[in-house]
Amino acid sequence: MRFSEDFDAIYIRYSDQLYRYIYTSVKDAYLAEDLTGEVFLRVWKKWKDIKQDFIQALLYKTAKNIVIDYYRSRKNKKNVSLEETVEMGLEPSYDEDLIEKINKDTNIQMITGAMSKLPENLKEVLVLRFVNDLSAKEAGEILNISEGNVRVLQYRALNKLKEVLKNGK
């Protein structure tokens, strides 16, 4: 069995965004690929009941939950559970060239390291707004806050990042 055409289109459109969002949290390019696949498989399971108007926010929320599950399982010293991937019998694949590039890029390492020192809400705003280029409205929908709040947070986040980078040098 394969996915439906509309699901394929959603995957093509959003999977890179989610990969970047997850990568900035887990800082492991292979794991980010696994968890991105897990996000889409979890969404696919409920595809028939999903309102596609809100698909972007739903994908990010699912990704956030999966990352939380990952940290929880790591804290409990359990193996990372890729429930849907295992259940659906999918073999994980990776873009080895890209992963090599990410792992060697000192700029990427520096910025992800700096972002990890920020509070979670500020880090999320930076990723949504400046890594994934979402509008303040889209970011607000994902974070369940108003556009105005997104702007306030991004101002605070950029200042904080500037401070972290300055101190890091």
Binding site: S15, D16, Y23, L98, I102, I108, T112, F130, V131
Partner: peptide, 10 residues
């Protein structure tokens, strides 16, 4: 500084 993070998988 975020430009490097705008990666695209193949």
């Amino acid at each position: 500084v975020f430009d490097g993070l705008k990666v695209e998988r193949s």
